[in-house]
């Protein structure tokens, strides 16, 4: 049997971590969406290779 006591501090930290997690997930989704839009844009073109080497 585990003993645990929720403190107000735990609730605050959980709300912060949950909020941050959701924000980060949303950001990942948005950046993915932006990338798809940019890449499928007809103006998009891969820069041509000039043949330079290191």
């Amino acid at each position: 049997m585990s003993l645990s006591k929720q403190h107000e501090l735990h609730k605050r930290r959980f709300s912060r971590n949950l909020g941050l997690g959701l924000v980060l997930a949303g950001l990942v989704a948005l950046i993915f969406g932006l990338t798809v839009v940019k890449v499928t844009n007809e103006d998009f073109g891969v820069p041509s290779q000039t043949g330079s080497t290191y």
Binding site: K11, S15, G19, L20
Partner: peptide, 19 residues
Amino acid sequence: SLNTTQTQAGDAGFGDFFA
């Protein structure tokens, strides 16, 4: 003193940062 917690760095909730 746990019942009257002093706010320290790392104690703010998501809503506090949003505010």
